[in-house]
Structure formats: C-alpha cells, structure tokens
Amino acid sequence: MNPLIYMVIISSLTTGTILTMSSYHWLLAWLGLEINTLAIIPVISMQHSPRSTEAATKYFLTQAAASAMIMMSSMTNAWLMGTWNITQMTSYTANIMLTIALTMKLGLAPLHFWLPEVLQGASMMTAIIITTWQKLAPMSLILMTINNLPPKILIIMGLMSAMIGGWGGLNQTQTRKIMAYSSIAHLGWMMVIAPIMTNILIMNLLTYLMMTTTMFWSLMMTKSKTIQNMTTTWTTSPTLTIISLITLLSLGGLPPLTGFLPKWLILEELTTQTLTTIAILMALSSLLSLFFYLRLGYTTTLTMSPNSPLVKYKWRFKPTTQTLPMNIMTPMALLLLPLMPTIIY
C-alpha cells in the first residue's frame, strides 16, 4: 500500500476513536464509529487474499449493523425523551438496543462469532489493532452510559463471554483464534464489573491492552501462526521464548504477574456485593482459559532443546519487526502487581 494512503487510513482510524471518546452528542459519536470502521476495512483486506477479503466483509457487515442499531437507539431516545445527549439515555427500550449494539461491536457472547473469523483472516498487525484500539470507542460509550444500561443483561453477557471464551479456545490450533477467544473472555470480566465499579473496569481494560499487545507482538516476531509453529520459537530467540511463557501466564491470571490484579479485584468486589455465585462461576471459567494458555506455554517452552531433537531449526535472520513496542509493553504486562497499592489508593 502507498505510504501516503496508509498514513491517511491510520490517521482516520485514530481520529474516529478520539471523536467518539470526546463527544457528548450521539450523531458525533456515531460519526466517529463510522470513520473508524471505514478506515480499518482497507487495513484488513490489504493482503489481497480471499481470506482477508472475507474477513473485511464480515467485519464491515457486523460493525455496520451495530452502528445502525446505535443510531436507532439514539433516535428512539431522542423521540421519547427529547435529547441527543449520550449521558441522558433514559429510555429503557433505547438502552437495551444500545447494550446489544455495543456488545456486538466489542465481540461479547452471544454476538462474538465474527471476532475469531476476522482475526484469522487478518494479519498479526491488523489483529493487534482490532483487539486493542478498536475496543476503545465502544468501551468509552459504555463508560458514558453505564448508569443507564441494564446491569443484569451486562452481567449475564459478561458471564457468558467468560465461559464461551474459555470453551471456544480449547479446540483451536491457530494462535490468532486462541487470542480472539482470549479477548472474548477478558471482555466478559470487564462487563461483569462494569455496572458495579467502573474504575476496576478501566484498570482491567488497561492491563488487557498491555498483555494482549505484548502477546501478539511476540507472536509476530516469531511468525507463529499455529501451535505447531510455537514449538520452534526457541530457535529464533530463547529470551523471547521465556517472555512468551510468562506473558501467557499473566494472561491466565496467575498471582505474581499483572494479569492476577484485575481478576483478584473483580472477584473481591463481586463477593462484597453478595454476588458470590457469579464470582465462583467467573473463577471457574478462568480455569478454562488458563488451560489453553498453559498448552501454548507447554508447546513453546517445555519442548525446548534438547527435549525435541526432531524439530527443524530456523535460520536466525535479523528480525524485521520493531522490538521497541515490546520492550515497553513487556515490563508493564508482567510486573505491575507490586504497584497495586499505588494504583488503587
């Protein structure tokens, strides 16, 4: 792609998200979402393969339907209540439509089917954008309207997402699909805590962005598209192999690492609000996700030389991927747990 055109597309992507996050009028928020969607379509289909074209089409249809539903809900609210202000969504019918539309944009269950297929058809770099940057605009709308959204629907959809994200990833061999189901499960944790305490939601979102970016970047540096590819990671970089393992454990939420922080606080808050059953189900669903993270970690690290002599060696070419983003994100994705008292108080 022409660098000038690529720069215009990336700047449009940034502008659309910032416009949605900074607006209080529904038309401006909708306009930002549309700019965002139209900018990401050429990025997804940039590979010029039937798979990427299919992924771009699926993404466009899903996001267009969700944007139309957002516009319908805002028009319903304006018709009944006489206001286009985002923070004054007081119509119950409009709020239900808005909840369904925003969860479809994010990829929560049961409206999650598009996310694994789109990520599988996109490149690794595009997958990073879809799973991180593209979540910011819908999440900001949820934060602005959270006082009016029905909490029972959000909690039920969050619980379903955590379970389906765990179950769906068990049967996958493609790393991008595994990361897609990981994204669905993490978004489920965010939605469960959203009606109760928004500052934990924001912290969970930030830790999710850091951990997901780090994991995708390590997959991109080692060119690991399947679990089988990950068995030869150590031939490319033994250090990166260890970083990938610890990042996977952080995504799974094991205690010494950053990923344990949001899950701990969410379970504590759910228990405080006497939602003990939901807290138990969420904790059990995280075990499903932890299983396929451990499976990835096993194939990456525990099959290192000299335990697997039949593995073909990779040539150690000079890496073409930038390492600076990973150098910045890795410490934050792994070592933020000791800073928890500073973050909270």
Rank of each mutant, 00 (worst) to 15 (best):
residue 328 I to Q: 03
residue 279 A to P: 12
residue 244 S to H: 15
residue 327 N to E: 05
residue 294 L to H: 04
residue 313 Y to I: 08
residue 324 L to Q: 01
residue 341 P to Q: 01
residue 238 P to L: 09
residue 284 L to S: 13
residue 291 F to S: 05
residue 332 M to K: 02
residue 318 K to L: 12
residue 306 P to C: 12
residue 240 L to W: 03
residue 305 S to M: 13
residue 295 R to H: 08
residue 316 R to C: 08
residue 256 P to V: 10
residue 310 L to I: 05
residue 331 P to A: 08
residue 256 P to K: 09
residue 336 L to C: 05
residue 275 L to K: 05
residue 288 L to N: 05
residue 242 I to G: 05
residue 300 T to V: 13
residue 253 G to H: 02
residue 260 F to W: 03
residue 314 K to W: 06
residue 257 L to R: 07
residue 263 K to Q: 13
residue 322 Q to S: 07
residue 273 Q to H: 14
residue 331 P to R: 07
residue 299 T to R: 11
residue 301 T to N: 00
residue 295 R to G: 02
residue 299 T to F: 14
residue 339 L to C: 06
residue 251 L to A: 01
residue 324 L to W: 00
residue 300 T to A: 15
residue 304 M to Q: 13
residue 336 L to R: 02
residue 243 I to V: 11
residue 238 P to D: 04
residue 304 M to Y: 09
residue 253 G to N: 00
residue 271 T to D: 03
residue 317 F to S: 15
residue 303 T to F: 11
residue 302 L to E: 14
residue 253 G to A: 05
residue 338 P to G: 00
residue 279 A to F: 12
residue 295 R to A: 07
residue 336 L to G: 04
residue 284 L to N: 14
residue 240 L to V: 06
residue 316 R to V: 07
residue 309 P to M: 00
residue 307 N to S: 13
residue 241 T to E: 15
residue 320 T to W: 04
residue 276 T to S: 05
residue 280 I to Y: 10
residue 332 M to Y: 01
residue 262 P to N: 03
residue 320 T to Q: 07
residue 343 I to W: 02
residue 331 P to W: 02
residue 323 T to R: 02
residue 303 T to M: 10
residue 259 G to Y: 09
residue 237 S to G: 11
residue 244 S to C: 14
residue 324 L to A: 01
residue 255 P to E: 01
residue 251 L to Y: 00
residue 297 G to S: 02
residue 242 I to T: 07
residue 328 I to W: 01
residue 326 M to Y: 15
residue 267 L to P: 09
residue 248 L to G: 15
residue 334 L to T: 00
residue 242 I to Y: 07
residue 318 K to T: 08
residue 261 L to R: 00
residue 282 M to L: 13
residue 285 S to W: 12
residue 284 L to K: 15
residue 246 I to W: 13
residue 296 L to C: 15
residue 285 S to T: 09
residue 272 T to G: 10
residue 251 L to E: 00
residue 322 Q to G: 14
residue 323 T to G: 00
residue 336 L to D: 08
residue 287 L to R: 12
residue 272 T to F: 15
residue 270 L to Y: 12
residue 331 P to H: 05
residue 276 T to V: 03
residue 235 T to P: 03
residue 274 T to V: 05
residue 264 W to H: 14
residue 335 L to M: 01
residue 265 L to V: 04
residue 303 T to Q: 11
residue 310 L to M: 09
residue 267 L to I: 06
residue 337 L to S: 10
residue 306 P to S: 11
residue 324 L to E: 00
residue 318 K to E: 08
residue 327 N to A: 05
residue 326 M to I: 04
residue 264 W to K: 09
residue 285 S to H: 12
residue 236 T to H: 15
residue 281 L to I: 08
residue 248 L to I: 06
residue 295 R to I: 02
residue 268 E to N: 10
residue 282 M to K: 03
residue 301 T to E: 04
residue 318 K to N: 05
residue 333 A to W: 01
residue 311 V to G: 03
residue 335 L to P: 12
residue 258 T to F: 04
residue 342 T to N: 04
residue 334 L to M: 08
residue 312 K to H: 06
residue 235 T to W: 14
residue 248 L to H: 09
residue 323 T to A: 06
residue 240 L to H: 05
residue 330 T to F: 11
residue 334 L to G: 12
residue 327 N to S: 07
residue 270 L to E: 06
residue 270 L to N: 06
residue 316 R to L: 14
residue 309 P to D: 08
residue 260 F to P: 13
residue 344 I to M: 00
residue 237 S to V: 00
